[in-house]
Design a protein around this nucleic acid. Structure first.
Length: 599
RNA sequence: GGGGGUGUAGCUCAAUUGGUUAGAGCGCUGCCCUGUCACGGCAGAGGUUACGGGUUCGAGCCCCGCCACUCCCGCCA
């Protein structure tokens, strides 16, 4: 070993002993006759001193020639610092190493950006950080994120092992199942013209594992989706994936609550209260306008359909007559919203199909609004009372079909919260975590363009038993045994109890989803076949591991908790991938590229 | 595919809104400095203002195009 201690280990108790530290030159302070070099490794940093009166000139000159991020091994006695020169900012600040030898393990070129200064480093252009990711990863903040990620992964494995789960790996060379996310395709050399697909999740394999009698499966599963990226979405990402046999929804809730309790304890030493609150999909939409509500702040939606049913304001009464509802949001303290902000909110409404956005600004004791003159005194009184309208409020209305009206104000609620946060009017404790389960999702949603039903989760989700008869009569009313786990408005994961009866699964595919029988056979025939030979009732869930770690780290993007993430265009700036391939490779795969080369 | 933001020295940012030779701090190079820890002092080098066009007497600044990064919408069963 080129080291006897790490750089966050030596204390006054070690004084007098010889030590060897290895690491990077964190900073060098050359006083001319005396040189201080801070050695940094993963654990921390320690000061070493090079004193020319004790050292050969050659050794001192080599120390003088070092620069930031050179890799060195320094040996010498641990000694106390002169009185008054301790550094209380670092844990090793009471001691130093009086260097007697220096081995330069590697020199470092002048750096493209500083890694020693946390203030500068965190403002460095992310493009540069990604290009020189190995330098970025040396920053203590990134080390901390990777360490926390590793700790949480281990805690999860320990937890599942203790609960009797088997860690089973599933293939990443799968086959294409065109429903759902766009897939990455892998051409097969041995089967000309045929392709594997990288799995968007191990969904079907884990169900087959249940048929295979595994009973309790889990995996830190890598998943791939060829969709556009976001701060919380990468083309390859990791899920804590699990499946269990002979269970009901409640078993999953208990299991995951226990897991998250364990994780929060491990990562943050925090005790989170369980069980988590449960919210039906309908209640989530009614109160928050979204199926993954952030309940750390209020701004709840109210329903005024009753009050406006007979309103003289035809836009409202007309919407109700057409089967719609009136939803209202009191954005407290936002009467000073700018024209641009109102416009942004209006655009949200329009993007969901509304014609516009009605609002009232409560300023100087007056209701300023283009529509308020159409309201009766009773209607105004009802608004004032139920919304507790005060000076400075901004009242926003959505008149539409129930789901649309809720979603419009849900988006606006989120936007208003952002505006209030940035103006300091809304302060959220960064240590607060609001977990909740969202349950009773509709099993199906209607594709208006194609006029057919599609699975709101996925086609393997079991209907709530008592709703099964509705599948053929009123599909819209069928609830799925699906559940989402949400924290602070982030969808952390989701899962469901699955269909395990081949007849029901076939019915969903063919009768409800209208997939032609031959296509069902080609894509899911093996699954239906498997179900014929004794498939146990089963269900599971998958948690977004990267999102989980980002929340624990307080990171704004999952890129900060992934060692080598990709840019918004799916590129790796360090390795410069994706990249072209040799003509011969294409020939081996029977592929022809028809797009003109850009470079 | 669409909308917003950003791009000036190695890094982080200025440049009085179109006006002389594009500046500062850090970093880098050289010299000085024996208790620093953001060490200090002196001197110096370093620029195709992402890139390509255009308008103008004159463009870092305005216009068009394009590239990269980023946030969002669509998309993500």
């Amino acid at each position: 070993m080129k080291r006897t201690h790490h750089c966050n280990e030596l204390r006054p108790a070690h004084i007098g002993r010889n030590a060897t530290l290895s690491g990077w030159v964190h900073s060098r302070r050359d006083l001319g006759g005396l040189i201080f070099i801070d050695i940094r490794d993963r654990e921390g940093r320690t000061q070493t001193v090079f004193d020319p009166s004790d050292l050969p000139k050659e050794l001192f000159d080599r120390a003088a020639a070092l620069r930031s991020e050179c890799v060195v091994s320094v040996s010498g006695p641990v000694r106390t610092r002169p009185p008054g020169s301790n550094n209380p900012k670092i844990p090793t600040g009471e001691i130093e190493i009086a260097a007697t030898s220096l081995e330069v393990l590697n020199m470092a070129a002048v750096l493209p950006f500083p890694v020693d200064d946390p203030e500068v480093a965190k403002t460095v252009n992310e493009e540069l950080r990604l290009q020189y990711r190995y330098l970025d990863l040396r920053r203590p903040e990134m080390v901390r994120n990777l360490r926390l990620r590793s700790k949480v992964a281990t805690a999860s494995r320990v937890y599942f092992d203790a609960q009797g789960f088997l860690d089973v790996e599933t293939p990443t060379l799968f086959k294409s199942t065109p429903e759902g996310a766009r897939e990455f395709l892998v051409p097969s050399r041995m089967h000309p013209g045929k392709f594997y697909a990288l799995p968007q999740s191990p969904q079907q394999f884990k169900q087959i594992l249940m048929v295979g009698g595994v009973e309790k499966y889990f995996q830190m599963a890598r998943c791939y989706r060829d969709e556009d990226l976001r701060a919380d979405r990468q083309p390859e990402f990791t899920q804590i994936d699990l499946e269990m046999s002979f269970i009901e929804r409640e078993d999953i809730y208990t299991l995951i609550e226990g897991l998250l309790k364990q994780i929060w304890k491990t990562a943050l030493d925090r005790d989170i209260p369980t069980p988590f609150p449960r919210l039906s999909f309908q209640e989530a939409l009614n109160r928050y306008g979204i199926d993954k509500p952030d309940t750390r702040y209020g701004l709840e939606l109210a329903d005024f359909t009753g009050e406006f049913r007979a309103s003289a304001f035809k836009i409202f009464s007309g919407a109700i007559a057409a089967g719609g509802v009136i939803k209202v949001l009191n954005a407290k303290g936002l009467a000073d919203a700018t024209q641009g902000q109102i416009e942004t909110m209006t655009e949200y409404a329009k993007s969901l199909g509304a014609k516009g956005l009605a609002y009232i600004k409560v300023e100087k004791g007056e209701w300023k609004s283009p529509i308020v003159r159409f309201f009766s005194e009773a209607e105004k009184a009802a608004l004032a009372q139920r919304l507790k309208i005060e000076e400075g409020d901004l009242i926003l209305f959505a008149a539409d079909q129930w789901l649309t009206a809720c979603e419009i104000l849900g988006k606006i609620r989120g936007y208003c919260a952002d505006v209030l946060k940035s103006s300091g009017k809304l302060i959220i404790d960064p240590n607060r975590f609001d977990f909740l389960w969202v349950v009773d999702f509709p099993l199906l949603a209607l594709d208006k363009e194609q006029n057919r039903w599609y699975s709101s989760h996925h086609p393997f989700t079991a209907p709530v038993a008592e709703d099964i008869p509705l599948l053929s009569t009123d599909p819209k009313k069928v609830r799925g045994q699906h559940y989402d786990i949400v924290v602070n408005g982030v969808e952390l994961g989701g899962g469901s109890i699955r269909i395990h009866q081949p007849e029901l699964q076939k019915l969903v595919f063919e009768q409800v989803l209208q997939i032609p029988p031959e296509m069902v056979q080609a894509r899911f025939g093996y699954l239906l076949e498997a179900f014929r030979y004794g498939a146990p009732p089963h269900g599971g869930i998958a948690l977004g591991f990267d999102r989980l770690i980002a929340i624990l780290c307080g990171a704004p993007s999952i890129r900060d908790v992934i060692a080598f993430p990709k840019t918004a265009k799916g590129a790796d700036l360090m390795t410069d991938s994706p990249a072209g391939v040799e003509a011969r490779q294409l020939r081996d795969l029977y592929l022809e590229v028809k797009v003109a080369k850009k470079d």
